[in-house]
Design a protein around this nucleic acid. Structure first.
Length: 423
RNA sequence: GUGGUCGUAGCUCAGCUGGUAGAGCACUCGGUUGUGGUCCGAGAUGUCGCGGGUUCGAGCCCCGUCGAUCACCCCA
């Protein structure tokens, strides 16, 4: 019989590493909650047209990376390649854009892009993102960036940097693009590169080939075409970031992969990940909501790649908490039913309790206790059941003390309180 | 989607110019009657990714395929 394999390019997590994944995801979510963002849980598939219009027809994501299929009713469905379009759709559909503003939400889940897989680049990957809809104040840009930066700092990441730029408003872009196209027209590229330039000339700045880069070194810079309003907003963002001691570098060649960005755009780049160095990115999308049929509201958000952040934490050798640190491990000696009853009683009290099953010898049971990582253990034999006294052994020190079985829960709760809670 | 590298026990890997597989760690049991982590002893474990070909004979050679990985494209 042939063994089943996971589909090509998906990321999977299982113990012990899944504990690290969970920790990272929770850290980001907690940071978002700290800033007042609330959960928005959305479908992983949407009408194909939503992404085509929302993300942009010219993007690679839409042109060749979407998982699109027809459902049984003949509708064209696409597995979500990013989170913002869905949030916009739900916000409009449920009239949140006509209610109290701003709408501040976070999401967490799987996303899909049919790319050639690589370390840190998967066909199913995980993002946590936030969106703040209905405020055009540049300070909200900074709030959004701060949520991500705080999460990274709490994780202990060091070797990353925040790059920011401004893509300006519609007038900025129109002026700039005509200048850039004029400049590119004077250059001689290969056919494929010409085609890319045709679709979106900004994409050329993303090219890694040195010959292309050197030619583009003298190209006009978008930053020079910012309207006074856009420039003022960008200055406000930079000043505010400085005031909060959030380090950043201005990258006036930054290219975002999605078409909806306007104004502030940013990217978090980690140095230890090879080619897939972006661990998160986002920006302002002031035209998107209206384009999808909603109110004319501005918005800003980010998406952080949980898979890549995990790789970044590992690259930096950060220690991450393991999941299930047990408070107590019970080794039964022919007393398994009673042991299970005691374990359940303690679990009802909120203690994390493990036990060995399957009639193991004492030595095997103690080995299991050791490997479980539990802080304490007890051996439960006929003697203990008869006397109601157990020897509570602290695994680390090896010392044990006699405790009355009926008081075990209270005793353990008192002991473990010193270690803080388990969350 | 394009190109390079790789695919041997649960994990990390070794396997000489082709002669039907090994190490370390992990695992199980034991080292005299009920206390783990060190040490000692014993034991189990693989269709050598999958399919085909060359050969008397292939883990080692050839082709295909699946997957991983690295770079490009692009991006979280």
């Amino acid at each position: 019989m042939t063994k089943f394999q996971a589909p090509k390019g998906v990321s999977e997590y299982f113990p012990p590493r899944s504990n690290h994944f969970e920790y990272i995801r929770n850290t980001i979510i907690e940071s978002a909650k700290t800033s007042g963002y609330e959960l928005m849980e959305l479908p992983v598939f949407e009408d194909t047209e939503l992404f085509a219009r929302g993300v942009g027809e010219s993007t690679d994501v839409v042109r060749k990376e979407m998982y699109t299929f027809e459902d049984r009713g003949g509708r064209s469905i696409t597995l979500r390649p990013e989170g913002t379009a869905g949030v916009m759709r739900a916000t409009i559909e449920h009239n949140l854009d006509r209610g109290q503003l701003p709408v501040k939400v976070f999401y967490s889940g799987a996303f899909f892009r049919a790319e050639r897989p690589q370390a840190g680049r998967y066909r199913q990957f995980y993002q946590v993102g936030i969106e703040a809809i209905g405020l055009s104040d540049p300070l909200i840009d900074v709030e959004v960036i701060a949520v991500a930066d705080r999460a990274f700092r709490q994780l202990g990441l060091k070797n990353y940097r925040l790059e920011i730029t401004s893509l300006g408003d519609a007038i900025t872009r129109a002026n700039y693009l005509s200048q850039l196209r004029a400049y590119i027209a004077t250059l001689d590229f290969d056919e494929e590169t010409k085609a890319r330039a045709e679709i979106n000339p900004l994409r050329l700045f993303d090219d890694k080939r040195p010959e292309i880069r050197s030619v583009l070194a003298t190209a006009p810079i978008l930053m020079d075409y910012l309207t006074p309003e856009s420039a003022a907003d960008f200055d406000a963002v930079k000043n505010s970031l400085e005031a909060l001691n959030i380090n950043f570098v201005v990258n006036n060649r930054m290219v975002r992969g999605l078409d909806y960005y306007t104004g502030t755009a940013f990217e978090f780049v980690h140095e230890g990940l090879g080619a897939q160095s972006g661990i998160g990115g986002g920006g302002r999308y002031d035209g998107l909501m209206a384009q999808l049929g909603g109110a004319s509201l501005s918005g800003i958000g980010f998406g952080l790649g949980v898979d890549r952040i995990l790789l970044a934490c590992e690259a930096e050798g950060l220690s991450m908490p393991e999941g299930s640190e047990l408070d107590l491990f019970i080794v039964p000696l022919g007393t398994a039913p009673a042991a299970l009853a005691i374990a359940e009683e303690l679990r009802e009290r909120g203690l994390r309790v493990g036990m060995s099953y399957g009639d193991r010898a004492l030595k095997g049971g103690m080995k299991a206790a050791d490997k479980s990582g539990a802080r304490y253990s007890i051996v439960l034999g006929a003697d203990e059941l008869a006397s109601g006294e157990v020897a509570l052994k602290a695994m680390k020190s090896g010392e044990s003390q006699s405790v009355t079985l009926s008081l075990l829960a209270n005793h353990l709760i008192g002991l473990t309180a010193d270690f803080g809670d388990h969350s």
